[in-house]
Amino acid sequence: MSKIQFSVQVLLVSDLERSKRFYEHVLGCEVTDWWAVRDDFALGFKLMQAFSIEDVRPNKAGKGQVVPWNTYAYVDTHVELDALFHELQTKGAEFVQQPVVEEQGWGAWKEFAIQDPDGYVIAFGSGKRN
């Protein structure tokens, strides 16, 4: 079976240059004419200029979901997740969910979420305390 190396999410955006600035300066992505990627494509996007604002349609919340996600990225430990939270906070990210810990039968899940200029929500989570 062939191995997939990485994937990117395609996002239609209302203002391509504004989105490129956000993904580079706030999210810390390497931004080119084709990609906005971070950590060797662990987090990747293809930003495309929409024809009209009506074409920009972030996800709505699913059943049982409070914050709707467009992208969900995993971080290894809670310590690394906290460091990422502080990094994004200092860069001016708009948080739609502050860090929250939910106790599960197997341990504690911690997550937070930010929003890009078009309302796409990018969540980050971790299941390891250390």
Rank of each mutant, 00 (worst) to 15 (best):
E94N: 12
K91W: 07
H86S: 05
E87L: 14
N70V: 04
A83Y: 02
A83F: 01
L88G: 03
Y74N: 08
A93Y: 04
Q98S: 09
T77P: 01
Y72C: 11
E87K: 08
Y74G: 04
A93R: 00
K91D: 00
H86F: 13
E87H: 10
D76F: 14
Q98H: 09
E80M: 15
T77N: 03
Q97C: 12
D76C: 09
A93D: 02
T71W: 15
D76Y: 10
V79P: 03
T71K: 06
V96W: 05
D76T: 14
D82V: 04
Q89W: 07
D82L: 05
T90A: 09
K91N: 07
E80D: 15
A83G: 10
Y72P: 00
A83C: 11
F95I: 07
T90R: 07
H86P: 01
Y74M: 14
V79L: 12
V75M: 08
D76W: 10
Q98E: 06
D82M: 10
T71V: 07
T77E: 01
G92W: 00
F95Y: 04
F85R: 08
T90K: 09
H78V: 06
G92D: 00
D82E: 09
F95S: 01
H86E: 07
Q89N: 14
H78C: 06
Y74V: 02
W69V: 14
D82N: 15
H78G: 02
H86N: 07
D76V: 08
A83R: 13
E87R: 12
L84G: 04
A73N: 15
V96F: 05
Q98Y: 12
A83P: 01
E87W: 08
T77K: 02
E80W: 15
E94L: 15
A73G: 15
K91S: 01
K91A: 03
G92M: 02
V75W: 15
H78F: 10
D76L: 13
A73D: 03
V96G: 09
Q97G: 06
T77D: 07
T77I: 09
H78Y: 06
A83N: 05
E80V: 03
D76E: 09
G92R: 03
V75R: 02
E94F: 13
L88K: 07
T77S: 12
A93Q: 02
E80S: 15
